[in-house]
Design a protein around this nucleic acid. Structure first.
Lengths: 187, 187
DNA sequence: ACCCACAGGCTAATGGTGTTAGCTTTTGGG
DNA sequence: CCCAAAAGCTAACACCATTAGCCTGTGGGT
């Protein structure tokens, strides 16, 4: 008979991600993960060093998921069309997975475990801006501005920070246009 | 002799705010607040309904502090000068008080306790945009765009999200100019 | 085919948390 | 001056992360 397949770090992270989706960041607890994976709480330490490290792993998963999705979105596009698609994909992801986005680390570059995933995500944005002829630090600034807009909006929207959802699509379109115009002006 | 003046909700919030400043949101614990105020932990429940409510009170304090400061900053100014001053004041506040900003609620309008404070803060931004001749929803959109930029940048910067601090002032200046140009184009 | 080292599970225990119940003390107004 | 209510206390509970130490199954090497 099939042995109840043994636990692995990946499966622990899977369960953690499910819990985050269902109950938010607060609901991610070792006890809950243990219950879900059918194991005693201390057994998790065979696969994960601590709750903090588990959070880190979950964060990496989210970053990778975002990177994959945005890469697909932007493939074959360039210029304004690419930027526009990227920005809308970013918002769509956060709208679909608000709880996941909330556990994505703000400073992935400062964490050994998350560094690679964070770098790749930013690289997608950076690459999307190729073709605008930005050189050196101009490209860095443009990437930062893009991050600010995209994360600022997603963070406020997913946190329920806009009083009424009325006209939010319009607000976002305006932000996209603002950024594109700005990009053109920089040239 | 002076009786060790009794505890009050305000003093509890004071202590909580100190703790947040020193140890971050995570450090805000009822036990720590009790120790700091020289009282047993359960005694705090005479002044505060729960840890969650205390967090709410602290959030209100932060929102009020921001509102006061930005109001002072913007007083007597109008147009681009006012917007520019507001944006820089926002960034400066968050840079000086990163831990406090992290506990400021993203959705103050959805919480009875924080609603008034949140409304006032947004009102300052809204009022700063007077004089641009924006009517109805245009003013709402413009306020939202302002919030997105200002919070997006502050959130990433205070979270250590920008890889290197190199040239961050330039990035922010570009964002300010981008917003001002956008505002002008809307007219 | 055996054996045994080790990976992966377990229970027990510790120290920290928020919260509730119920008692005692202080204090301020009638 | 008194006494009710406010504000403190201790004890207790449930939940959490984490550590220590034990047990067991399994898989690779001889």
């Amino acid at each position: 008979m099939a042995v109840r397949s043994r636990l692995t770090t990946a499966k622990v992270v899977d369960a953690a991600l499910e819990l985050v989706d269902e109950q938010g960041v607060e609901g991610l607890t070792l006890a809950a993960v243990a219950a879900r994976t059918g194991v005693a709480t201390p057994s998790l330490y065979k696969h994960v060093a601590s709750l903090a490290e588990l959070r880190g792993h979950v964060g990496v998963r989210v970053l990778e998921e975002m990177t994959d999705r945005f890469t697909q979105t932007v493939l074959g596009l360039s210029g304004d069309a690419a930027v526009e698609a990227l920005m809308h994909a970013y918002r769509a992801y956060v709208k679909e997975n608000p709880k996941r986005y909330a556990i994505a680390p703000m400073d992935p570059l400062h964490d050994e475990l998350q560094q690679a995933a964070g770098r790749k995500l930013i690289e997608v944005m950076f690459a999307t801006l190729r073709g605008y002829g930005l050189e050196g630090s101009d490209a860095v600034h443009a990437t930062r501005r893009l991050r600010v807009i995209v994360h600022g909006f997603a963070s406020i929207e997913s946190g329920g920070g806009f009083g009424l959802p009325e006209g939010l699509d319009d607000t976002y379109d305006q932000l996209v246009r603002m950024y594109l115009t700005d990009l053109r002006g920089q040239r």
